[in-house]
């Protein structure tokens, strides 16, 4: 190994003329040593960089592989969390206790009209569509889906409003929106018949809350071509959609379903009529709007007791 220690160059101290040459030789040796050292360091540095770069590329490749594997497993029909959805709930729902229905139907309209409206986000909107009728009466068309949490929220005020103008037979059952879609307790209008002297009610629950295994939900009811056209032309085919005889439409839910998430049906029902709670206020204020809309667009302000109550007459 080369050394740069003084006197270690091997030259004789007696040969003074050769001192310069020795110094040159020594200097040259030091330079070669420095060059070799630099080359070694550079090589080590390059190797280190190459190694780091290889790690980086490997990490990127690993991520691409993981993402690709997830997609391939899904496309190949791998696991799905959809099996956790309420399989026990029959399409027409489970019966609601009579006492609960009596409570819901007995809340005075004045309570609804007094409810704070701060939670109301969407209000019914006037339209100029051809008259929507069925059996010679103005028709109230509702298109929703059992998986849909917004429909779940909207059915509460819709049920309350409808019971002021007519009766259901049998009464709607209770369900909840799909687990991965909010798990909101609600009614289902599927399997019910509504009768009113003033208008008809046509509910269409497009799907159940049960996954069909391909990313959607099993079909329950199919809208007629006329309903489909009206629905898609008015709000692009999203749920819920309510059309009040072609005069007024509600293109989405009136209030947020979030406060209702994961609650039992009875807990929400108990808050109906309590304007001091967010849920009670949202449902009550929404019901007041729907009753008012039905009075003006479908029932010709009948029955007078209902419509005068909501209009403050």
């Amino acid at each position: 190994m080369p050394s740069n220690r003084p006197g270690s160059s091997g030259s004789s101290p007696k040969k003074k003329p050769s001192t310069t040459a020795a110094a040159k030789k020594k200097s040259s040796s030091s330079e070669r040593f420095a060059e070799r050292q630099a080359a070694k360091q550079q090589a080590a540095q390059q190797a280190r960089r190459a190694r780091t770069r290889a790690y980086g590329i490997a990490a990127i490749a690993l991520v691409v592989l993981v993402v690709g594997a997830l997609v391939i497993v899904k496309v190949a029909g791998g696991g799905s969390g959809s099996g956790t959805v309420d399989q026990a709930s029959p399409p027409a729902g489970t019966p609601i206790p009579a006492a609960t229905l009596t409570h819901l139907q007995s809340v005075p309209i004045s309570t609804f009209t007094a409810a704070p409206t701060s939670g109301i986000i969407t209000t019914p909107q006037s339209v100029n569509d051809p008259a929507l009728t069925a059996d010679g009466k103005p028709d109230l068309l509702y298109i929703g889906a059992e998986f849909c949490p917004h429909c779940a929220a909207e059915r509460w005020p819709l049920y309350l409003a409808l019971t002021k103008f007519g009766t259901f037979s049998p009464d709607p059952g209770k369900i909840h929106s799909a687990n991965e879609d909010g798990d909101v307790p609600t009614f289902t209008f599927y399997g019910t018949t509504y009768s009113s002297p003033y208008f008809t009610f046509t509910p269409v629950e497009a799907t159940t809350n049960k996954p069909d295994g391909s990313g959607g939900y099993t079909v329950l009811q199919t809208p007629t071509q006329a309903q489909l056209t009206l629905w898609q032309d008015t709000n692009g085919g999203s749920f819920p959609f309510v059309d009040f005889g072609g005069k007024v439409v509600l293109p989405s839910a009136q209030y947020s379903f979030v406060p209702l998430q994961n609650l039992p049906f009875s807990a929400v029902a108990a808050q109906v009529g309590q304007n001091s709670t967010q849920i009670g206020a949202d449902i009550g204020a929404s019901a007041a709007q729907l009753i008012s809309t039905i009075c003006t667009s479908l029932s010709h302000d009948q029955p007078a007791a209902v419509c005068s109550a909501v209009h403050g007459g």
Partner: peptide, 22 residues
């Protein structure tokens, strides 16, 4: 946007279903 108070169609590509999920 009040449109977020609506569920989109029943398909795999469904932004509302994702953005309103738990």
């Amino acid at each position: 946007s009040s449109s977020t108070l609506a569920c989109s169609d029943n398909s795999v590509v469904n932004c509302l279903k994702v953005t309103t999920s738990s």
